[in-house]
Simulated assay, not measured.
Amino acid sequence: MLIKLKHSSTQSLGRLLAGLVVSVVASAAMAAWPEKPITIVVPFAPGGSSDIVARNLAPMLGERLGQAVVIENVAGAGGMLGTQRAVRAAPDGYTILLGSGSEILINKLINPKVATDGIKDLSPVVFVGTGPMVLVGKAGLPANSVADVLALARAKPGTLSYASAGNGTPMHVAGELLKMRADVFMTHIPYRGAAPALIDLIGGQIDLGVSTLSAAQPYIKSGKIKAFAVTSAKPSELAPGIPAMGQVKGLEGFDLGVWFGLFLPNKTPPEILQKVQTAAQQVLADPQVKKRLAEQGISASGASAAELSKFMATEVEKYRAVVKAAKITAE
């Protein structure tokens, strides 16, 4: 016996079958991913901390995912050009951002007109790691501790200068937090990166600097500059022999570091997010990768996307309080 279907029923059945086909095709595509090389966007120039971290992860991440992972440096506008490149990329898993505090959180705080919002426009994948910054001084500065530095600052307000890797960087925020907590005034000198700031510090053109540990360590070890404290609550195993800012009298609890994470564009399929997270966690658990990152002043994490999101929610409030109180702007 033949069964005649009404036109509307035929249309409904057609839509159902079409939906099933799309679902099957999409599932097959997810299973096959990745089918071509993957790009990690580094929003800063080659040779900086972000670039070094990304290049330490890329080879083994490629092995885990079964495709080459290449680095693309997109520098400019304090990391925003590279961040925008990642935000605007197709959400297909082939463009990953190696992000840090500057471009993900701070830039939006110091310049609300910035179109990209690192929290809203990107999906966290994995927490790569954290590291302390370090307060350093020129070799000839008559100070051997944080207490000595603060005494000099109080004796001659405004005469001491301190350098950072740029306006609105974590180093700048840490310097302003120190000024606020200690109630001292020092003149901020922003540079375009840690390297030129350290060169002027070695040359004696500036008195102090807040730097990433990786950039400053060679000069600390050679005696070309002095190290007063890491910017953490407790001493860091990455910087043996250097006191912690958070254990200085009057600065108890001081804790502000640099951090890195992997991010994907919003609307990236959760199956791809999970694949990248699992592969990255395996890479970050590798002893050789941990060792190489430690040599760069970074303690490998490997925490999940959810844990990275929670960390960022806490960190952005730290930044917000300092940016507001110190009136830090993009200019």
Rank of each mutant, 00 (worst) to 15 (best):
G193L: 11
K138N: 15
L150G: 13
G79I: 04
T187D: 08
M133T: 09
T83Y: 09
S145G: 14
L178Y: 07
D117S: 10
I199M: 14
L177R: 12
T130W: 04
D121F: 01
I96F: 12
G131K: 03
E103H: 00
D183L: 12
G129L: 02
R154D: 14
G78N: 06
A195L: 15
S123D: 06
T130P: 02
K108G: 08
G79V: 11
V136C: 08
L160N: 07
Y162R: 08
E176V: 13
L135E: 12
G118P: 03
A89H: 03
A155S: 13
P142M: 00
K120C: 05
M186K: 08
L178N: 08
Y162H: 12
A147F: 13
V134C: 00
A139Y: 08
A139W: 15
A194M: 05
P124T: 01
S102Y: 02
G79R: 07
A77Y: 12
L150V: 14
R88T: 13
V126Y: 09
P196G: 12
L109V: 15
I202N: 06
I104N: 07
H188P: 02
Y94C: 05
D92P: 10
M80H: 07
P190C: 01
G131P: 08
A194L: 07
F185A: 15
V125G: 01
T130G: 02
G79H: 04
L152Y: 06
T95I: 12
G99I: 07
G168P: 02
L135C: 08
G93H: 03
V149R: 02
A194E: 11
V126H: 03
G168A: 09
H188S: 06
I104Y: 01
L201Y: 01
Q84A: 13
G158A: 14
V149Y: 04
V173E: 03
K113L: 14
T169E: 03
G101E: 01
K156N: 15
P190R: 02
L109N: 10
V173D: 08
G175I: 14
V87I: 09
A195N: 09
T116W: 13
A86D: 04
A77G: 08
G118S: 11
G78I: 01
I119R: 11
A77R: 15
G168E: 09
D200H: 13
R88Q: 14
V126T: 08
M180A: 15
G193I: 05
I189R: 00
G175Y: 04
T116V: 15
G140K: 05
N144M: 05
V136I: 14
T159R: 14
T130F: 06
V173M: 06
A182C: 07
Y162L: 01
T169I: 01
P112G: 03
G158L: 02
D148Q: 07
K156H: 13
G82V: 06
R85M: 09
P157V: 07
R154M: 12
A77T: 09
E176R: 15
T159G: 00
L105G: 08
G168C: 12
S145E: 12
V146P: 14
R192I: 09
K108F: 11
P142L: 04
K179H: 08
G158M: 08
L135P: 02
L150M: 15
A155I: 10
Y162F: 14
G137N: 12
P132Q: 05
A194Q: 02
P157G: 11
G99P: 05
